[in-house]
Design a protein around this nucleic acid. Structure first.
Lengths: 210, 210
DNA sequence: ACGCTATCTAAGCGTCGTACAGATAGTACA
DNA sequence: TGTACTATCTGTACGACGCTTAGATAGCGT
């Protein structure tokens, strides 16, 4: 649950706090050499221990990666929280996308780990989702139904995630230059949904109209 | 470019059309054992050839996976195309999500391959995107600016992708049961964006209203 | 019929995740 | 203080992986 469950800095092991050293080594490798270079042996090497040492702190490689991913969710939540009150809902979305851009390999690891176990981050890790939900509530008004709130939050999350993942796709380069740069594009997409115009409670099924 | 570049059924090799046999074996393994079991050696085993045989048809493992992914994009486009004219834009989105549900490992492989090379599927593979764009144009009206059309299409794609990827997340189970099941949930999210209500040309920054 | 080339096999290299036995260093208690 | 005890780390090994190379084989054009 606690993403830094090895954060007991008081407790020292033979060669120091190896658990923390391992996750830090992993994040270092992730940033420098990318996700495909993140082998357990490489992490152990980077931390200066034998290939078998990590197994005294993590059941297997997946558990190490999960710990790193949890740290990523915490960092994402912090970055989104720091953008609170600056640019409204759009500001949170842009902070989300900025995190993904600045920590691409980590961001992809976070979702890769989630896909492996079919569970969204919860507890500290899922704080970002709740922050966005709160801002969405403020955006669409307290009067909106809880169902609308949930739908709007999820839709906004999808938009942010899509922007984070597909930012570099060639199909978008024309659009981005046409709209005035990367940030303007992100802003435009986030605001395009214009969540909370009050149309969600009675979803229309119009097939075609001008 | 052509996702079935090995589809020359006329040309037979020593043991038949091994290139096709390999991609088919890969898709079989993907469906039965998941993505992490998809090793080159396992594919060769499934196809009944030696571990080195695939290298005469693919430069390396990545090229084999790319070929499988391209077949996936074609299949996705076909499924989306088959839903044309049935349920409007929402129908296309639901077909997209249904494909991801029915071919989960393949769907994730498709995006994993894309992330590795920072390029969206084009040509035959990207047909689905163009189909959705066409339907979005019909939905928002021909009068909308090209910029709005692109933004709306991308936003709708993000929504569909998010639904496909996060469908099983525990955070959503309450919402799904509350809204009346899986399909109703997908429909609600897709329609929530209500793309093309004419607010995109002049994106409002309303902070709160009911 | 004869070479030519494409195709496939066998064997091997370095790396990976992981397991296990033994060494070592802190800790608890006599 | 000395002595078990346990947690931590090393060394070594196993099977599987991606990929390379050398050699066998089969279909092709001439």
């Amino acid at each position: 649950m606690d993403p830094n469950e090895g954060e007991r800095g008081d407790r020292a092991y033979h060669h120091g706090d190896l658990r923390r050293a391992l996750t830090e080594a992993a994040r270092r490798l992730l940033e420098s050499d990318g996700a495909q270079a993140l082998s357990l042996r490489a992490v152990a090497r980077e931390a200066g221990v034998s290939p078998a040492a990590p197994y005294h702190h993590f059941k297997d490689k997946n558990e190490l990666l999960d710990a790193v991913a949890r740290q990523g969710w915490v960092a994402l939540s912090e970055q989104v929280a720091a953008a609170r009150g600056e640019g409204g809902l759009t500001g949170l979305g842009m902070a989300y996308v900025r995190f993904a851009r600045e920590n691409l390999a980590l961001y992809q690891l976070m979702y890769a780990r989630i896909r492996g176990q079919d569970s969204l981050p919860h507890g500290k890790g899922g704080e970002a989702y709740d922050l966005i939900k709160k801002q969405v509530r403020q955006h669409i008004g307290q009067a909106a139904s809880g169902l609308d709130l949930e739908l709007a939050t999820f839709a906004f999350w999808c938009l942010s995630h899509g922007l984070a993942e597909m930012r570099g796709f060639p199909r978008l380069v024309d659009l981005k230059s046409q709209i005035g740069g990367e940030d303007a594009f992100v802003r435009a997409v986030l605001e395009h949904m214009s969540v909370g115009d009050g149309h969600a409670a009675a979803p229309q099924m119009a097939s075609a109209d001008v």
